[in-house]
Simulated scan of single mutants.
Amino acid sequence: MLLAITDDELAGGDSPSVPVSYFVQPVRHDDRQPVTDLVKARTAWMRDQSLPLEPGGRPVLSCLSESSAIRGAQLWVLYEGTVPRGAAVTSLAPALDVQWRQQDGDTSLWILDMVTDPDADDSPGRWMTWWLSSTFHRFTVVSAVTCSEPLARKMADLHVMDLRTDARQTSTHLLRRRTRHAPRLHTFVASPDPVITVPGHPRC
């Protein structure tokens, strides 16, 4: 299914009469090798496209290793049928105000890392961002940060996020989108029932 839907369409209207395309779940033991292969494929694709790689390794891989898990983080895996199409690491932390005028004490769901299948016909990163934005809609924002401007612009476009550059640290690019409950999203992206919410944000 090619992506041809907007935030507004996910927020209301009639549900489409099409099969659910994706399923998101917390990482399982059986996901470890498929997600590792997914990271390898994405890394090779980025090199072929001359896109910069983030320094310091991939948090997705750290979350796959119990001995080096990132404290307080959760790894989600997006499947299309039986094929993993994306993986994202999230954690909860204070929102960072860079020209967005958030309230003091706001909590953001931070995307620490996201990897998607370069061979996917659709935009799995966008579906994952929509799912996170809707599932954790009680929080104000979903946020991410990168040191690469080309990667930041690509993420902003594909993941439907706003982009800001920190004037004090011009190499730091912050991405953010307001969370929004999307009642129709479940017709495209299924997830465990009951939906996992906070408190009880699972950890990798």
Rank of each mutant, 00 (worst) to 15 (best):
P94E: 11
R28F: 00
S15V: 10
H159F: 15
D119W: 11
D31M: 03
T6D: 04
P194T: 03
A11Q: 09
M128W: 08
Q49V: 03
L158N: 10
D14H: 06
G72H: 03
P94T: 02
A4M: 05
V142L: 10
V195P: 01
F23Q: 11
R153Q: 03
T107G: 14
W130R: 01
A73Y: 03
S50H: 13
D122N: 06
S123Y: 09
L75C: 15
R42I: 00
A144L: 09
T146L: 05
P55N: 06
A4H: 15
S133Q: 05
W100V: 14
H201G: 03
S143K: 00
V89C: 05
G57D: 10
G72M: 06
V20H: 04
Q25S: 15
L96T: 15
P199S: 00
Q103P: 08
K154L: 15
A190N: 01
D122K: 08
R71S: 05
A93M: 14
H201T: 00
L10F: 02
F136A: 07
R47E: 14
S17H: 09
D193V: 13
V160P: 03
R101A: 10
L3T: 06
A41D: 08
D166Y: 11
G200Q: 09
I196H: 06
V24A: 00
P59Q: 05
I5T: 08
P150S: 13
A69M: 10
T170F: 03
W131V: 03
S91D: 14
R178L: 13
D97Y: 10
M114Y: 14
P19A: 14
P183S: 12
S21C: 09
T140K: 13
L2K: 15
A93H: 15
S134L: 03
T6S: 15
A144I: 10
R58V: 12
E54A: 13
G86R: 07
S17D: 12
L51P: 02
D113F: 04
E54R: 12
V35I: 14
A44Q: 04
R85G: 02
A69K: 03
W100R: 05
R153W: 08
A4F: 14
L2H: 04
S123L: 15
C147K: 15
D157G: 11
Q169M: 09
V18E: 03
E9A: 07
V20F: 08
R85W: 01
P26H: 11
C204D: 02
S15T: 10
L132I: 01
R32N: 12
P16K: 04
G13K: 02
L158I: 11
M155S: 05
H137F: 15
S50Y: 12
H173D: 06
D106Y: 02
F23Y: 04
D162C: 06
G57M: 11
I70K: 00
